[in-house]
Computed example of a mutant assay.
Amino acid sequence: MISGKRVCVVMPAYNAAKTLRRTVDEIDRTVVDDVILVDDASRDDTVAVARELGLHHVVHEENRGYGGNQKTCYAEALARGADIVVMLHPDYQYSPALVPAMAAMVASGHFDCVLGSRILGVGALRGGMPLWKYVANRFLTFVENLLLGYKLAEYHTGYRAFSRELLEALPLEENSDDFVFDNQFLAQTLWFGFEIGEISCPARYFEEASSINFRRSVKYGLGVLGTAIEFRLARLGLRRPARLSETGRRLVVLPPPPAQAISRGCGA
């Protein structure tokens, strides 16, 4: 706990068996009260490793996508009483050692969302981020800062912390189940008047670390631009989609509808 707030780490997992143990070993359990892994129909031993580690885990019988995985992560964390939720990828790309710092920034009350930025400092290229990804990151971030009217070092990190209030307020079910979910989430955060903070985070790029290919990166980039334009049009009063509406669908907290076809368990 931090300042009397229950801290939960959620890990959206897909084929993370080789790196999961290393990631979990570096989570500070003196601060973190709960760790949840959501497996998105992995083809390796991710679930078996989660059981060995004693993690509370949820298994999607069919792959629901990165965004769909996160929706389950957050609904599960809220159902288990989390006040602060930190999303940490189980591929060991981001440093688990920063979980306490990110959670503390949320607990301070100054920020509703905290991003572990690879761009602040010199962590991205030094950690092995491909140059083309770095250039695309900088271009997309520039456009987003312009259209969203905010200033962040990057919008594309997968290392994030959230307050319970934020997760309950945003219509996250209106967002994509694909990678652009991350970007739509931040646009919603700003639209509904919540505050975003950043902390410098080193990142590692290696064979086992998950990374989308060039084709999917292009699709993501177009989705990012579409989200920023959608936000600006809404600001101008020209068009407001459901994800930026007060009446948009919020997360469905447990028990989930049968159609989600998921199973739950704790480690042996």
Rank of each mutant, 00 (worst) to 15 (best):
R243T: 00
F206V: 04
E198C: 06
E62D: 09
L251D: 01
M102N: 07
E198R: 11
L238V: 12
M1H: 14
S163R: 10
L53M: 10
V122H: 14
G265H: 08
C73A: 12
D45Q: 14
G128C: 04
G197V: 08
L233A: 14
L125P: 03
E230K: 11
R249H: 06
P241G: 05
R21T: 09
W191C: 06
F214H: 09
L172D: 07
L120M: 15
R51K: 15
A48L: 07
N15K: 02
R235K: 15
I199M: 12
D28T: 06
T30L: 02
R6A: 10
A242L: 06
F162Q: 11
S245Q: 04
A82G: 09
K151R: 12
G265Y: 08
L37E: 08
V47G: 01
A17Y: 09
G81L: 06
T72H: 04
V49W: 05
G65M: 00
A50W: 04
R239E: 09
V122E: 15
G121N: 14
G197T: 08
E52C: 04
I196E: 05
P130T: 11
T72C: 08
V9H: 12
H156R: 07
Y94K: 04
G127K: 09
D44T: 00
T19M: 07
R249F: 00
A101L: 14
L88K: 11
R232C: 05
S211T: 02
L98K: 13
L98I: 04
D112W: 07
N69Y: 00
F231C: 03
Q93D: 15
G267T: 02
P96W: 11
A82Y: 12
R21F: 01
G267N: 04
Y92V: 00
L233K: 15
V49G: 01
S200R: 13
V135S: 06
F179P: 03
F139P: 00
E198A: 07
L140Q: 03
A268P: 15
V135Y: 10
T227Y: 02
G127A: 06
Q70H: 12
G123N: 14
H60S: 05
I27G: 04
F206D: 14
Y66P: 01
G4Y: 12
T46M: 05
L55M: 08
D40V: 01
C8F: 09
Q70W: 05
A136F: 02
A209G: 04
L190K: 15
A101N: 05
V252Y: 01
F206K: 07
T189K: 09
R22M: 06
L146Q: 13
Y150I: 13
P241I: 08
E52T: 13
D39T: 00
K18F: 01
V35H: 11
V224I: 14
Y205C: 02
Q260C: 02
G68D: 05
G68R: 01
G81H: 10
I212A: 01
V7H: 11
I199G: 01
Q70T: 03
F192T: 07
N183W: 04
R43K: 13
R264F: 14
A169D: 13
V218D: 02
G54Q: 06
K219W: 03
D44S: 00
P130C: 12
R240M: 09
A79M: 08
L147H: 10
A268N: 11
S176W: 08
H110R: 14
D177H: 13
L236Y: 12
T247E: 14
